[in-house]
Nucleic acid binder design. Structure first.
Lengths: 109, 109
DNA sequence: TTATATTTGACAAATAGTGTCAAGACATAT
DNA sequence: ATATGTCTTGACACTATTTGTCAAATATAA
């Protein structure tokens, strides 16, 4: 079984690449997001994790597909949670089942 | 495609079932875990989430398979993270890739 | 140099997690 | 009824983590 991992683009890289391709400065994007440029700088270098609200704003400001960026964001968090576990596969299988369960048994309160 | 979801046992239920099947009181188990019985009560009713250290202690005290309980614990956290997302499947696929990536590119600092 | 952009670190503020405790609820026995 | 034992509930404090602010340091370009 051959494994092809070319490169794993981090969420910070995705954001920085898009910002630079649009020719925008940190302070310009930061102003649009209503945050300090220092925070955005750290996010782009993966020194700080963006929260969900920021992800949504970023997808709008930088015209990145919202679902794409959200998926990156959440999977990042998950990978971080289970990175040091030796039962990651099992955990993900279980999580899948639980998500299915929560979907079909969605509580509406 | 038929789907069979009998019942999804929560981590709290697992713990309470095991404790009761052993005929132990909250205060007995709590003493062994070195926590207040109130905390254990809340954990068993899924009102409070146990941390990893407690999971390990619980698996010993109640003789529950450590890997099993850990997997339940982490998958709970993950399911909670992505429960309200409509791209849960995509996220889990991505997370799987990232975990693989982190495993094969483990940083040692 | 000067000007602009980014990075870095120290710190404060806000939020979330955790532990402690006592009163309330509930069942059972006397 | 009271007494006893177990469990539950909520208020509160303490700690840790996350998030935000700011200014100094660094880098880059003209």
């Amino acid at each position: 079984m051959s494994r092809h991992i070319v490169q794993m683009e981090t969420i910070g890289q995705i954001i920085r690449n898009k910002r630079e391709s649009l020719g925008l400065l940190l302070r310009q994007v930061a102003a649009s997001l209503d945050i300090d440029p220092a925070i955005l700088s750290k996010i782009e270098r993966n020194e700080r994790r963006p929260n969900k609200e920021l992800i949504l704003k970023l997808s709008e400001t930088l015209d990145i597909d919202k679902e794409e960026l959200l998926a990156q964001y959440i999977s990042d968090k998950i990978a971080y949670d289970i990175a040091d576990e030796n039962c990651a596969d099992r955990v993900l299988k279980l999580a899948e089942k639980k998500v299915q369960y929560l979907k079909t048994h969605s509580v509406s309160n």
